[in-house]
């Protein structure tokens, strides 16, 4: 069973990369991930002079580690969870905070202007998305009376959180897109403006780790959306893990789809809107859930 789950996970990572390619180039190419992998493995490892040696090597590792650690507390099916940490809802937050640390490190390390601006922009993005994401998670914790993600799924048996707290879902969804720096919020990379920003100086294996880590991050985030708001493994007929993966892939596909039709948001605007609009909305969401729970 565990082998099946790991296989499904790897397949989802592969499928997501195909899907992302489909969204950009408008045609299916099922071999592309493998050719990219082979290319990145043999690409020459160009390192900028005057770089910060430690950060340049550790940033990609920290990035992929942070993206994968979040999976460690997210349940795949009933009874199939790597660690049923009783502060799981807080732990995924903590793991995602280190995505930002890794990006800032990667932006700082090569001593290049573009990458550094990308890194600082991502910190601005964190300041914008962090409050909505935290408060949306808190509202789900309130309903489940527990920070354990298994209990959060169990609390949605009768009514999914997406119907119970739609505002929270929207906030979390937007914040998740900002966290994975997907198109409307892809400030740290900004191809066309910053020329791949943070990743511009990374080649070869390090870029491979970043790309793989990004896919895993999107997958972890979609899994988090599924677990927190879409009822996790709940669903008729099919077994639990199948539902989890179907929902996860659908959420990830919707991330890619939404990004296509929205222009890129500047970080100043993002900060302003998030503090003037999203934070009060998140407070309202908590009040809403609080009143619903008391009724």
């Amino acid at each position: 069973m565990w082998i099946l789950l790991i296989g499904l996970y790897l397949f989802s990572v592969y499928f997501l990369s195909v899907l992302e390619r489909r969204m950009v180039y408008k045609k299916w190419n099922f071999a592309a991930p493998f050719s990219t992998l082979a290319f990145l493995l043999v690409q020459e490892d160009v390192k900028p002079h005057q770089r910060d040696r430690i950060f340049y090597e550790t940033a990609p590792v920290l990035f992929i580690a942070a993206a994968l650690m979040a999976v460690g507390v997210l349940p795949f099916a009933k009874g199939f969870i790597i660690t049923g940490l009783s502060t799981g809802a807080l732990f995924i937050n903590a793991a995602f905070a280190y995505i930002m640390v890794a990006i800032v490190m990667a932006g700082w390390a090569p001593n290049g202007v573009y990458s550094m601006i990308g890194g600082w922009r991502f910190l601005a993005q964190l300041i914008a998305y962090s409050m909505p994401i935290v408060m949306a998670i808190t509202a789900t914790v309130m309903r489940a009376e527990s920070m354990s993600l298994v209990n959060i799924v169990a609390s949605q048996t009768h009514l999914w959180n997406i119907i119970y707290q739609p505002v929270g879902f929207v906030l979390f969804y937007v914040a998740a897109m900002a966290l994975a720096f997907l198109p409307p919020f892809d400030l740290p990379l900004a191809p066309g403006e910053l020329a791949e920003g943070v990743w511009a100086e990374f080649t070869g294996v390090k870029l491979l780790l970043f790309r793989l880590g990004r896919l895993m991050l999107i997958l972890s985030l979609s899994l988090a959306v599924t677990v927190l708001f879409l009822g996790g493994w709940e669903g008729p007929l099919l077994p639990g893990f199948a539902w989890t993966f179907i929902k996860t892939i659908l959420v990830a596909a919707s991330f890619f789809l939404c990004g296509q039709y929205v222009p890129r948001v500047q970080h100043d605007d993002l900060l302003e809107w998030s503090w003037k609009l999203l934070t009060p909305l998140a407070l309202f969401n908590i009040l809403w859930v609080g009143i619903l729970l008391l009724l």
Binding site: A89, L90, V134, M135, T138, V141, M142, E145, M147, G290
Partner: peptide, 8 residues
């Protein structure tokens, strides 16, 4: 907020 949410 997190400990509060648990006992809410």
């Amino acid at each position: 907020m997190y400990p509060w949410a648990v006992v809410y």
